[in-house]
């Protein structure tokens, strides 16, 4: 009985949220097993310290539907005391379905581990923190990547077990995917994020945000209002129902600071707010505020840095 971590990869190795999930898992068990969907860089993944076994597949698996994944995982998962994944739309899609198959109640989005079965998780968009104790025999968790350090120790030499390729069911079929391509850093691992809101005004104007981001080697974020208005695509949304980020520097531009937005960024180390309304609620969580028109201020900053 031990702990299975289902990792997501970026360029073949576990991404930052997955490394955070590994750190969390190692607070619970001294060694873990890891499951990854792409065997290409398995020799590198093997080196992660305290990983005993790695499950992967002969071929890289893309475009998984939850149904097929759960059918494959339910046999493996049944043997573990903990099943752990990073929080994100990938795990949110299949972890609860897997839980249904094993008759378990997952604890999602944990931000702290008290003991073997007691965890903190944010509720009400992070306006309250619940301490919950699980009484399930197998504990399923998803881990909020911003709440744990990414695991960085190597020296491991895990054994590898390749599983047969997933069987495709016939009731659910992948059709296509539109992945936003970007040279910029990932939102979930960026040190700096420049985020634009409704105040930016249009898709064209979003260039102002992009130019500042590029100058700072930052990722781009957005409020729901900016995404809804079509200034930028959905995967940039930060907040209660978007991504949760905690960079060293978060620059909120033309964002009012609704609680649903704050839920996704208030753990950032330094928050800068730029808004023309001095009463905007974003200033209540910001460390530094600048009252002014973003159309003049942002280009000035971009030029000066």
């Amino acid at each position: 009985m031990s702990c299975l971590v289902i990792a997501e990869l970026e360029n073949g190795t576990p991404n930052r949220p997955s490394l955070a999930a590994i750190s969390a898992s190692l607070e619970l068990e001294s060694t873990i097993d890891l499951l990854v969907f792409n065997p290409d860089k398995i020799d590198e993944i093997k080196k992660i310290k305290n990983v005993k076994k790695i499950y992967s597949f002969k071929n890289k698996i893309d475009n998984l539907v939850a149904e097929d994944l759960v059918n494959c995982l339910k046999q493996i998962a049944a043997n573990y005391k903990y099943i752990i994944a990073p929080s994100g739309t990938f795990s949110k899609n299949f972890i609860p379905r897997l839980a249904a198959n094993l008759d378990l109640q997952p604890v999602t989005d944990i931000i702290k581990i008290h003991d073997k079965n007691t965890f903190d998780r944010p509720i009400y968009a992070g306006n309250a923190i619940a301490t919950v104790r699980s009484h399930d025999k197998t504990i399923m968790l998803t881990v909020r990547g911003t709440a744990f350090q990414p695991f960085a120790q190597d020296g491991g030499s895990a054994e590898v077990e390749l599983l047969p390729d997933l069987l495709e069911g016939n009731h659910s079929k992948f059709i296509n995917k539109e992945i936003t391509k970007s040279e910029r850093p990932e939102l979930s691992s960026a040190k700096i994020i420049v985020s634009g809101g409704r105040g930016v005004g249009s898709k064209d104007n979003f260039k102002i945000i992009e130019e500042l981001a590029d100058k700072l080697n930052a990722a781009i974020g957005a409020s729901r209002a900016a995404v809804d208005a079509g200034y930028i695509s959905n995967d940039y949304q930060v907040g209660q129902t978007g991504k949760v980020v905690a960079p060293e520097l978060y620059i909120a531009v033309g964002i009012s600071g609704a609680i649903q937005h704050l839920a996704g960024m208030k753990d950032s180390k330094v928050i800068v707010a730029i808004n023309k309304d001095e009463d905007a609620p974003i200033f209540q969580v910001a460390d530094y505020g600048l009252v002014g028109d973003l159309f003049t201020t942002i280009p000035e900053i971009t030029k000066e840095i």
């Binding site: 475009n63 899609n93 009731h171 659910s172 296509n176 539109e178 936003t180 695509s233």
Partner: peptide
């Protein structure tokens, strides 16, 4: 035919 919001963008599935 359902289009879904996922971490990297959008994905479309066909479900019976």
């Amino acid at each position: 035919l359902v289009t879904r919001e996922i971490d990297g963008g959008l994905e479309t599935l066909k479900i019976n």
